[in-house]
């Protein structure tokens, strides 16, 4: 996979990067369309961080591009507030490139998901969720007060109404779940015979 991507040069990198952006926006659009209180708009960013680029830093740069362009396009497509969550995507890209990539790249490439790997994936997903929450919470809390018109806003409203503080509510909105679900979704898509056969 790596050799093939490197050998094809900028064409394949540009194509894969564009596909990862499309993946981000596709899942984001669907979740936004049916107003689910979860986020799946970082799957492409994680995929780019793990798969694209010969080094971690290149992976980080490319996945940051994926995350940033995804959210710029999402602003044009469906959600006008996503522009301010580009730093969250960059944080996810950094975590995925520098922490997840070295731990899981070989696992992802051989396409097998054992119970030990599953536990590692879940653990990393939880940590990724925390990273995403910590980075997005200040933006959500102080820019929008936690309510951005998405399904997750209802959770924040409920928490605010129950007496939680703004920052607590913003942290507790489904960002924890978001990271986990993004990462779990990505890992599911990479595991199994289909992925192994294709690569």
């Amino acid at each position: 996979m790596r050799n093939r991507l490197e050998a094809n040069g900028p064409t394949s990198v540009a194509t894969i990067t564009a596909l990862c952006i499309a993946l981000n926006v596709a899942l984001g659009t669907i979740v936004y369309l049916i107003k689910l209180p979860v986020y799946l708009d970082a799957v492409g960013t994680i995929a780019a961080a793990v798969l694209v680029g010969s080094t971690r830093t290149k992976g980080f740069l490319l996945s940051s591009i994926v995350g940033s362009i995804s959210f710029i396009l999402s602003v044009m497509a469906f959600n006008p507030v996503l522009f301010f969550f580009i730093p969250t995507q960059i944080a996810i890209a950094a975590f995925s490139s520098y922490v997840i990539r070295p731990l899981l790249r070989s696992y992802v490439l051989d396409g097998l998901l054992t119970s030990r790997r599953g536990a590692l994936v879940l653990g990393l997903g939880v940590v990724l969720g925390i990273v995403a929450a910590v980075v997005s919470a200040p933006f959500i809390a102080y820019q929008f007060g936690g309510i951005t018109g998405s399904g997750a806003s209802l959770v924040v409203a409920l928490l605010l109404k129950s007496g939680s503080t703004l920052f607590q509510s913003s942290c507790l909105r489904v960002d924890f779940g978001a990271g986990r679900q993004d990462f779990a979704a990505y890992t599911r898509s990479c595991s199994g015979k289909g992925y192994a056969a294709a690569h």
Binding site: T15, T17, A18, I21, A22, I65, I69, I72, L73, M76
Partner: peptide, 8 residues
């Protein structure tokens, strides 16, 4: 990348 992604 932007142009390709936008088209998709």
């Amino acid at each position: 990348v932007f142009a390709n992604a936008e088209a998709q």
